[in-house]
Design a protein around this nucleic acid. Sequence first.
DNA 1: ATCTTTGAGATACAGTCGTATTCTAAAGGC
DNA 2: GCCTTTAGAATACGACTGTATCTCAAAGAT
Lengths: 209, 209
Amino acid sequence: MPKTVDRDEQRRQIGAALLQLVAERGLDEVSVRTVAAATGRSPGAVQKYFSTKDEMLTFAAELAGERVERRMAGVDSALPLRQALRELILTTLPVDAERRAEATAQLAFAVRAAHHPGLAAIRRQVDQDIRQALAGWLESAGHTTHATAVADAVIALSDGLALRMLYTPQEHEHLLAALDRSLDALIPGPGPEPPYSSAGASSCSASRR
Amino acid sequence: MPKTVDRDEQRRQIGAALLQLVAERGLDEVSVRTVAAATGRSPGAVQKYFSTKDEMLTFAAELAGERVERRMAGVDSALPLRQALRELILTTLPVDAERRAEATAQLAFAVRAAHHPGLAAIRRQVDQDIRQALAGWLESAGHTTHATAVADAVIALSDGLALRMLYTPQEHEHLLAALDRSLDALIPGPGPEPPYSSAGASSCSASRR
DNA sequence: ATCTTTGAGATACAGTCGTATTCTAAAGGC
DNA sequence: GCCTTTAGAATACGACTGTATCTCAAAGAT
């Protein structure tokens, strides 16, 4: 046996470099050569691990998906529902350099998935996992009705806020306020009632206390 | 004066073709040559109207923004708030081929804006316009507190749902349900419950038709 | 009818792309 | 020790990119 290397580890290194490159320069700037340079390798060396650019892209998309799911699993599930949700969403919003990198890559892949069946399948799988985990949280917190619909709403809200934050760093404050407002509305109680206006029969606020 | 043409009209034609191309094949497939072919022109003819690819892209992004704002202005403002919002959001979701085309282009430009200051500025302007119009709707419907936060939430929700619909056509039903759930939560019934609501009960049980 | 200005097409150029092929060097197994 | 297998680099190729330049046809003004 000749010189041997941990192939999977190498692939993960390259994939990680690709994600970072997407974050810094955009998915359009990703080429076999730029990724190779970002990892200090020659283009030929990258070819040893990914025979095709598309294979490399797909691998990186899966890697990014795994990261999201791992972060999700890392949220303290003992937290009150609203806080847990807020914490989870905050880990997906580009509020600092690291999260901005992740969000950028995530959204870039999502848009490309619109014209790339392979990437679309990966995104669908990740979304499905997150959706079911979220629905589980909701149900175990007493949110037995329309748990999946609320889960989908939370996902959409998170993605939409992240997208806009990408090109509007000035408005992070406003958008975080919008996040809290939405969570207040979507997740009634526990704790002090959100300071929502409107006369007594405010829609959902009576369901759980 | 020699042969003369309506330059602005030509530019709009080319811009429209570019948007359609983005919708059908993705922003990566947009090149001076592909756009020229899509308009039945030669690449050189396109150069007469846009001396640079970036100028062409910027123009198309503005064109797309105008379309959104025009659609927004077209929503019947006499409608009850919740219905107006729902109608507005539906015109931005990829529920049919035409809207899918618009949403695809919109989101593609949004992601590219993350690394393109010019596009970012355009997006920010469009977002600002929509936000203020939405906030105006909300306030004039009695939603005097946190109108802008709710407006931002609505925008994020709309973008997030559109993004996911792009690569998950199978789940349109679920996502529309999530939209209604969110609207129910965000917009407490304006006096008379909207017709979506089932009887006088809490609007929590109201779902899409 | 001529001139002049313009739209449109064709072509050229340097650069980058993805991928295939070829080479060098090094690290186990014998 | 050599020999095989592999990692990695270098190179080659055709296709495509954005942009600059050139030519030609056509239409209004004189």
